[in-house]
């Protein structure tokens, strides 16, 4: 009986106790989490990389959270980038939109999401995911007609 009480209390308090940090190194692409999670622009393969770079800039500047998409498909929601907590439309995230980076930082898990506080970008491979070769640009209006060659 005594053993049941902590179990019950843990179940009641569950999510609030799930925030122990863990130091990690993660390699992944800096993505726009709304387009990736919502599917509003298409499937997950189409809303990453070069095809979606311009939209990723818009969303980052618009204050949509950025994430790191690891090769195994895990998404890490970035709360700080290299110590910069201006994470709602700030310059640091904007300048590395769509870049593949290797990040060192603290990982927290809560209620099914992975949250990453990036303390250092160890390596920046620039933009290497050439999805425009398969998808063109997403959305199609990302490049205005005024850019059409004469």
């Amino acid at each position: 009986m005594r053993a049941m009480i902590p179990l019950a209390l843990a179940a009641l308090a569950g999510p609030a106790l799930a925030a122990d940090g863990e130091r990690v190194q993660v390699t992944g692409e800096v993505i726009d989490t709304w387009c990736y999670f919502s599917g509003v622009m298409g499937g997950p393969d189409a809303v990453v990389g070069t095809a979606h770079h311009t939209c990723a800039l818009w969303c980052s500047a618009g204050g949509i959270p950025v994430g790191l998409l690891a090769p195994d498909g895990t998404v890490y929601m970035v709360l700080k980038m290299e110590g910069d907590d201006e994470n709602a439309g700030g310059d640091t995230n904007l300048r590395i939109a769509s870049h593949t980076i290797e990040a060192d930082g603290m990982l927290y898990r809560r209620d099914g999401l992975n949250y990453l506080i990036v303390e250092e970008v160890i390596a920046d491979q620039d933009i290497v995911n050439a999805t425009h070769e398969d998808f063109g640009v997403i959305p199609g209006f990302a490049i205005p007609d005024s850019e059409a060659p004469e």
């Binding site: 070069t50 904007l94 490049i143």
Partner: peptide, 10 residues
């Protein structure tokens, strides 16, 4: 950013 890296970022 578009000026610096272009629409595709390349």
């Amino acid at each position: 950013e578009l000026e610096r890296e272009g629409y595709l970022g390349l």
